[in-house]
Design a binder for these strands. Structure first.
Length: 358
RNA sequence: GGAGGGGUUCCCGAGUGGCCAAAGGGAACAGACUGUAAAUCUGUCGGCUCAGCCUUCGGAGGUUCGAAUCCUCCCCCCUCCA
C-alpha cells in the first residue's frame, strides 16, 4: 500500500500511461471502471503543451484533468533518450528542441522539479539520462555519473522548497552490474522515498533485464517502493513482481491496442488478421472487460479496419483491463503465498497462443 | 448525326518506342511496437522450377530488332454541339 496526497493504491500496481494528461481514448470514469488506481503523465509533453503555468493556474493536474486519484509524472528523462536527435546533454542539463515547433528549451534537474511542482503530481521523477542500448561500459558509466549528480541537485531543489509530492531516485547503469550497484549505493546516501529502475527494456535482450533485476532485487531497500520504468509485457510484469517490483508503467497495452495487438490470458492476438473477419465470438469468453462483454472479434476488427474511433477505445479498454486484472490476480496470489506457482501457470498459459481461447 | 476526350496490374492514377511487371496513393495481407513525436511504422503486394522465364496495360490485327506507348479496324465510357 502506497499513500499519496490523492489517496492510496495497492501494490503491485500497473499505471496506464497518460502522457498528455489523458490515457488515450479512455475517459477518467472508464479508467476507474477498468480498475486504474494511478496514472502517469509526462513533464516534457505537458511543459510544452499546455504549459506548466497554465496547469498550475488550474490548480494542478488533478484539477485541470478531473482525475482525482494518484498521478505520477515522468521527468522527461525518457525524451532525452527517445528524442535524442533533438537534444544536447551537458552537465548543466539538457538543451532540447521542441518536437512540435523546433523552439529551444533547457531542462535542468532543478527546473524539472519546479515544473512538476506546478503540475502537482503525487509522485515525481528527477531528470535522468536514460542510457540507450547498446552502450559501452564507458558511456553507461558517464550517463550514470551524470544522472547521479542530477539526482543530488534535484533532491536539493526539492528540499529547498518541500511539498507533499514525493521525489523518487532513479537507478541507471545499463546492463552492467558494477554500474547498477554503484548507482544504488550512491543513491542510498541521498535518501529518496522510492526508487525507480530506468534504462531497461530499451532494446536489450530479455535475459539482461532479468539478470539486472535479479542482481538488484536483494540490494534494494525493502521498505521503499520500487518502480520499474517503462516495463512491460504481461510476462515482464510477472517477472518484475518476482523481483519485488511494486509499480509498473508502460505504453504497451494502450499503444499496441490502437495498433491492433490484443493481450489475452493465452497470449497476443492480432485482431486485424483476416482470420477474425467473420469471427462472431468475443475476444475472450472469460474476460469481463467492456469489449468482451458487448462486442465480437469481427466487429472490433471492422472498427479498426475502417478507422472508427470505437475500435481504438474497445481494444484499449480490453488491454488495460487485462493488465490491471493480471495485477489484481498477482496481488491475490501473493496474499495466498502462492505467487511462484501462480506465475509459472500464467506464463505457461500465455505461451499457449490466443487460438486456444475457446 | 458531328466534334473532342478516354479505357493501365483489386481500386484510383502516372507512364506516350527500349532504363516497364509498369511511378505514386488506396485497399489487402503479414510483422513491429516496453518511463507515447505512434489511431504509428516496416515489409509484401501478376505467376513460376525466381540473378531467369512466362503472362499482363479494352479486343483483334499490323509496323518494328523491340510496343502500355506508333498504325488499322472493332467494342465500351465521358463531355460538348445538333
Amino acid at each position: 500500500m502506497v499513500k499519496t496526497a490523492h489517496g492510496e493504491f495497492q501494490t503491485p500496481v500497473f499505471m496506464p500511461v497518460g502522457t498528455q494528461a489523458t490515457v488515450k481514448t479512455q475517459s477518467h470514469a472508464e479508467l476507474k471502471e477498468l480498475g486504474a488506481e494511478i496514472i502517469l503523465g509526462n513533464t516534457y509533453h505537458l511543459y510544452l503543451r499546455p504549459g506548466a503555468d497554465l496547469i498550475a493556474s488550474a490548480g494542478g493536474l488533478h484539477e485541470f484533468s478531473g482525475w482525482d486519484r494518484p498521478m505520477l509524472t515522468d521527468s522527461g528523462g525518457y525524451q532525452v533518450f527517445s528524442l535524442k536527435a533533438l537534444n544536447r546533454i551537458t552537465d548543466e542539463g539538457v538543451e532540447f528542441q521542441s518536437h512540435l515547433d523546433g523552439s529551444r528549451h533547457i531542462f535542468t534537474p532543478e527546473n524539472v522539479v519546479e515544473i512538476q511542482r506546478k503540475l502537482g503530481s503525487d509522485i515525481t521523477m528527477p531528470l535522468d539520462v536514460c542510457t540507450e542500448y547498446p552502450a559501452e561500459h564507458r558511456k553507461a558509466e558517464k550517463d550514470a555519473a551524470r544522472t547521479l549528480q542530477w539526482l543530488k541537485r534535484a533532491k536539493a531543489a526539492w528540499i529547498a522548497n518541500p511539498s507533499r509530492q514525493v521525489l523518487y531516485g532513479i537507478v541507471q547503469g545499463s546492463i552492467y552490474e558494477d554500474l547498477r550497484e554503484r548507482c544504488l549505493n550512491d543513491i542510498s546516501e541521498i535518501d529518496f522515498p522510492g526508487l525507480a529502475l530506468g534504462g531497461l527494456s530499451v532494446g536489450e535482450p530479455k535475459e539482461d533485464l532479468l539478470r539486472i533485476l535479479d542482481f538488484l532485487a536483494p540490494k534494494l531497500p525493502p521498505e521503499k517502493p520500487r518502480h520499474l520504468l517503462g516495463v512491460g509485457t504481461p510476462e515482464d510484469l510477472l517477472d518484475g513482481v518476482l523481483y519485488g517490483v511494486d509499480t509498473f508503467d508502460c505504453v504497451m497495452p494502450t499503444r499496441n491496442a490502437r495498433n491492433g495487438t490484443i493481450f489475452t490470458r493465452k497470449g497476443k492476438m492480432t485482431i486485424k488478421a483476416a482470420a477474425y473477419a467473420s469471427d462472431f465470438r468475443p475476444i475472450d469468453p472469460e474476460c469481463g472487460c467492456p469489449a468482451c462483454r458487448n462486442y465480437t472479434r469481427a466487429y472490433i476488427r471492422h472498427m479498426l479496419s475502417v478507422g472508427e474511433i470505437l475500435g481504438l477505445r474497445l481494444t484499449t479498454a480490453h488491454n488495460l483491463y487485462f493488465y490491471i486484472n493480471l495485477i489484481k490476480q498477482i496481488r491475490q496470489a501473493i496474499k495466498d503465498k502462492s505467487y511462484k506457482s501462480f506465475r509459472q501457470e500464467k506464463l505457461a498459459e500465455m505461451s499457449e497462443g490466443s487460438e486456444h481461447l475457446y
